[in-house]
């Protein structure tokens, strides 16, 4: 096994376990890579604030992809983060200023549909849809998405039982599904982003 895989695996394991281990792993990623990414963005005339934003977005994307099994573990995490940040900078930040920079990027690593949605012209629609389900629904669905069991969600949300938590989750899921179903533009954007258009 390559050395980078060993160190990757420790971080990946901690990120997936969640809690304090996850926080420590994130802190490690931040400490080890912040300067590199800031230098990268500054090299392409990005401001310090933009560099910080790209870095936070990049770390989030990497952790999110790892937790959702999108990272293939075929390179050191720092290299993966660098590529992701480069994509974020050129596709999401720099592209706003100079469109031709988009052409510079072509690689097998892609950004998540969630990140793409955040930077799409459908962001307002996205926010509007999410706001319609209410805060409790958002929390329940997020816990469920993160992989918490119904028992754990019951405790976190202080519901009477795990069954109540399950019912609430199902209800919220149906509500959100209906909202999206009725929003053709948002559906289309998601489809396009999935196809990489």
């Amino acid at each position: 096994m390559c050395n980078y895989k060993d160190s990757n695996n420790i971080i990946i394991d901690h990120l997936k376990k969640g809690g304090l281990l996850e926080s420590n792993a994130i802190a490690t990623l931040i400490k080890q890579n912040e300067i590199k990414i800031i230098v990268l963005v500054r090299k392409y005339n990005g401001s310090m604030a933009e560099a910080q934003d790209v870095f936070i977005e990049g770390i989030t994307e990497v952790v999110f992809n790892i937790k959702n099994n999108r990272f293939r573990n075929d390179s050191p995490l720092s290299t993966y983060l660098y590529k992701i940040c480069r994509l974020i900078w050129f596709q999401k930040f720099r592209s706003k200023k100079v469109s031709h920079f988009n052409q510079e990027i072509s690689d097998k690593d892609t950004l998540s549909i969630q990140l793409n949605l955040e930077y799409s012209n459908q962001k307002e629609v996205l926010n509007s849809v999410l706001s319609q389900i209410g805060e409790n629904c958002k929390r329940v669905l997020t816990f469920w998405s993160e992989g918490f069991s119904m028992k754990e969600i019951q405790k976190k949300m202080e519901y009477a039982s795990a069954q109540v938590a399950m019912n609430k989750k199902n209800k919220c899921l149906t509500t959100l599904r209906e909202l999206i179903k009725n929003n053709t533009e948002l559906k289309q954007t998601m489809e396009e982003l999935r196809d990489g258009k």
């Binding site: 996205l126 997020t142 959100l176």
Partner: peptide, 10 residues
Amino acid sequence: TWDMIKVLER
């Protein structure tokens, strides 16, 4: 719907 919920998680 799943992708939308993942937006919340992200």
